[in-house]
Amino acid sequence: MSDFLTNFVEDLKENVAGFIAVAVTEIKTGMSYKALSVDPSFDAELAAAYNLEVVKAKMSTIKALNLNEEVEDIMITLTNQIHIISVSTSGEYFIYLAVDSTKANLGLTRAILKKYSREIESKL
């Protein structure tokens, strides 16, 4: 599994334009399975830990509203970055990805992330 996640984060780094950071994190415990950042000042594990609260809040909101829905992804647009939180279909983990908004193609980035998310789901 460790080799798979290492390959996964390296593939994202190489194939996503504007890649800044990625982390794969378990929702129940908040434990980060794997993280990588190309910017030494950007702590991907810390960012994922804070974004775990965003995921939990959204899941709580869906439950409180009694919606028959599940979170697929959450996108946060900052001045120069886009942060995408892709929740697994099982709801057990999420992939947190930060990209430079001036370099990334959002549609392509989301498609790549969704593809990798399905692969991770089959491995976990």
Rank of each mutant, 00 (worst) to 15 (best):
D73K: 08
E92W: 00
I62D: 03
V54D: 10
Y50S: 10
N68K: 09
Y50F: 12
E69G: 03
Y93S: 07
D43R: 14
E72V: 15
A104H: 02
Y96K: 01
T89W: 03
E70I: 01
I62F: 10
T102Q: 15
S88L: 01
L65C: 09
Q81M: 08
A48L: 01
Y50A: 07
T61I: 03
F42S: 00
I82S: 11
K103I: 05
L52K: 02
S88G: 12
S86M: 13
V99I: 13
T77S: 13
N105Y: 12
L65K: 04
S101N: 13
T77V: 04
A64Q: 10
Y93A: 10
I62R: 02
N66P: 11
K63P: 04
N80Y: 13
E45D: 15
E45Q: 14
L46F: 06
D73N: 14
I62L: 13
A104F: 11
I74F: 09
E53Y: 00
L106Y: 07
V55F: 01
N68L: 07
K103Y: 13
S86I: 02
Q81P: 07
S86H: 15
L65E: 05
A57N: 08
D43H: 14
K103N: 12
E45A: 14
V87R: 02
A98Q: 07
A48Q: 01
V55N: 02
I76T: 13
S101K: 10
V87M: 10
I85P: 03
I85V: 14
V54Y: 11
E53M: 08
T89Q: 12
A64V: 00
A104D: 06
K63H: 09
M75V: 13
L46P: 11
T79Q: 14
Y96P: 02
T102Y: 13
L78W: 07
A57Y: 04
T77H: 12
L78F: 12
L46Q: 09
V54H: 04
M59D: 10
G91Q: 02
K56G: 14
H83W: 11
M59F: 01
V55M: 04
E92L: 02
S86N: 09
L52E: 01
Y50W: 04
T89D: 14
S86P: 00
A48D: 10
T79S: 08
N66H: 12
E45G: 09
H83C: 09
D43P: 01
D100N: 13
I82R: 01
I95C: 11
N66L: 10
V99R: 03
T61N: 07
V71F: 07
V87G: 01
V54S: 03
D43K: 12
G91C: 03
M75K: 09
A47K: 03
A44V: 00
I85A: 05
M59H: 04
M59L: 09
A48P: 00
S90M: 03
S101P: 04
E45H: 04
A47S: 09
S60P: 07
K63A: 04
T102V: 06
E70Y: 01
L46K: 10
S88T: 00
L46M: 09
E92H: 00
T61W: 13
G91D: 05
K103R: 15
V71C: 06
H83Y: 15
S90W: 02
